[in-house]
C-alpha cells in the first residue's frame, strides 16, 4: 500500500489505527448512552469522523502540536491520550486536570501536545499560527495541525489564520473536518466555494480527501505534513466525512435534515476501514468482533471506574485565574466558602 513500511510494520500501523477508530466509536456510544441516562451532562459526538482524525494523526510525529476542537476524540486516542483523561474531563470530576471547569468535550492534554479546547469555533486557529511561528523562529523540526469544522471556515479567525500562516510561510496544517453540518446549516449554505479551494486565495496549498477512508486521509496527510515540515508553507486539507450523530446531545437533527450516512452503512468510516483491511488480508471478521468487544469492555470498565471519583473541591474554583491569587479573589473565596 505505501513504501513507508515493510509488510509487518504496515500491518501493525494499520491495525493500530483501526483499533483507535473502534475504541473511539465505542467511547462515543458509551458517552451518548450515559448522557441519555443522566450520568453525563453533555457531549459532542464524534461518530463519522474517526477516519479523518486517525488518518491525519497517523502522519504526525510525537513532538508535533495539535490545536484541536471539541470533536477530536479519535485524534486524541490515536495519539496516545488515555481515555481516563477524556472521561475525567467529560465527568468534570476531581481528577480532571481542569478541575471540572469546562463543559464536557473541552479536553486538555498538554503532555500529549494537545491544546486546551475552547467553545467559540475557530478561535484555536490563530493560536496554532502563533505556535507555528515559534517553531519556525526556533528552527524546530515540528509541525502544527489545527482542526475545525466546515462552519468555522466562515469565521474571521479562519481567514486571519490562513492569511497569516501563508504570509509567514509557516509549518502548519489546517485540517477542515467537513462533516457537512454546522449544527443545522448544511455546508452548501455555509459557503459557495469548496473549502479546499479557498487555500489558493491565501497562497496556501489546498487538497480535498475522502475523510471516511483512513488510508486515503493518511496518504494525503502524509504529503501535507512533509510539505509543511520541509518549509513549503501551510496546507489546507478538506476531509469530507459526515456527522452521523447530532451536533451535541442537546440537538435533534430530525428537525432539520433527513438521514444521510448511517452507522454501519457502506460509507461508515469503520465499515470502510474493515473492507480495506480485509482486502489487505490484515484482518478477519473474527478479529474484528474480538477487537470490538475488547474496546467495549475497556470503555465500560473505565467509565465505571472514573464515575466513582468525587467532584472537585469547591475551593478549587478560585485557583488558576492568575498565577498568584489576587486580593479580590481571596476575599471572594472567603465569602463563598
Amino acid at each position: 500500500m505505501t513504501e513507508d513500511f515493510n509488510d509487518q510494520e504496515e500491518k501493525d500501523v494499520f491495525l493500530r489505527a483501526y483499533s483507535s477508530m473502534i475504541l473511539s466509536r465505542m467511547f462515543d456510544k458509551k458517552i451518548v448512552s450515559a448522557q441519555r441516562q443522566g450520568r453525563v451532562g453533555f457531549y459532542t459526538p464524534t461518530i463519522g469522523q474517526e477516519a479523518t482524525q486517525v488518518g491525519v494523526s497517523m502522519a504526525l510525529k510525537k513532538g508535533d502540536l495539535v490545536y484541536e476542537y471539541y470533536r477530536d476524540v479519535p485524534f486524541m486516542i490515536h495519539r496516545g491520550v488515555p481515555i481516563e483523561i477524556l472521561l475525567d474531563q467529560i465527568m468534570g470530576n476531581g481528577e480532571d486536570s481542569a478541575k471540572g471547569r469546562q463543559m464536557p468535550s473541552h479536553y486538555n492534554a498538554k503532555e500529549y501536545n494537545f491544546m486546551s479546547v475552547q467553545s467559540p469555533v475557530a478561535a484555536n486557529l490563530p493560536l496554532a499560527v502563533g505556535a507555528a511561528y515559534a517553531i519556525k523562529l526556533r528552527k524546530e523540526d515540528k509541525v502544527v495541525v489545527t482542526t475545525f469544522g466546515d462552519g468555522s471556515t466562515s469565521t474571521p479567525d479562519f481567514h486571519a489564520a490562513m492569511n497569516l500562516a501563508s504570509v509567514f510561510n509557516l509549518p502548519i496544517i489546517f485540517l477542515c473536518e467537513n462533516n457537512q453540518w454546522a449544527i443545522s446549516l448544511p455546508v452548501e449554505k455555509q459557503t459557495k466555494v469548496e473549502i479546499w479551494k479557498k487555500a489558493e486565495a491565501y497562497g496556501a496549498h489546498g487538497v480535498k480527501v475522502d475523510g471516511n477512508d483512513f488510508l486515503e486521509t493518511f496518504k494525503v496527510a502524509k504529503e501535507a505534513v512533509e510539505r509543511a515540515r520541509s518549509g513549503k508553507g501551510p496546507v489546507l486539507i478538506e476531509a469530507v466525512s459526515y456527522r452521523i450523530g447530532p451536533h451535541s446531545t442537546s440537538d435533534d437533527p430530525s428537525k432539520y435534515r433527513s438521514e444521510g450516512i448511517t452507522e454501519g452503512s457502506e460509507k461508515d468510516p469503520i465499515v470502510i476501514a474493515e473492507k480495506r483491511l480485509k482486502e489487505l488480508d490484515y484482518i478477519t471478521d473474527e478479529v474484528i468482533d474480538k477487537m470490538k468487544s475488547e474496546a467495549k469492555r475497556i470503555v465500560d470498565e473505565k467509565f465505571d471506574e472514573r464515575e466513582k471519583i468525587p467532584p472537585p473541591k469547591p475551593e478549587t474554583m478560585f485557583d488558576d485565574v492568575y498565577k498568584e491569587m489576587t486580593w479580590i479573589i481571596k476575599e471572594e473565596k472567603g465569602e463563598v466558602l
Partner: peptide
Amino acid sequence: PLVELGIVGMAIGMALNGL
C-alpha cells in the same frame, strides 16, 4: 498584516510555546 484578532491570537500562540 492588518488584522487585530490575528495579532492577538498569534501572540497567544507564541506565549503558549515559550516566547
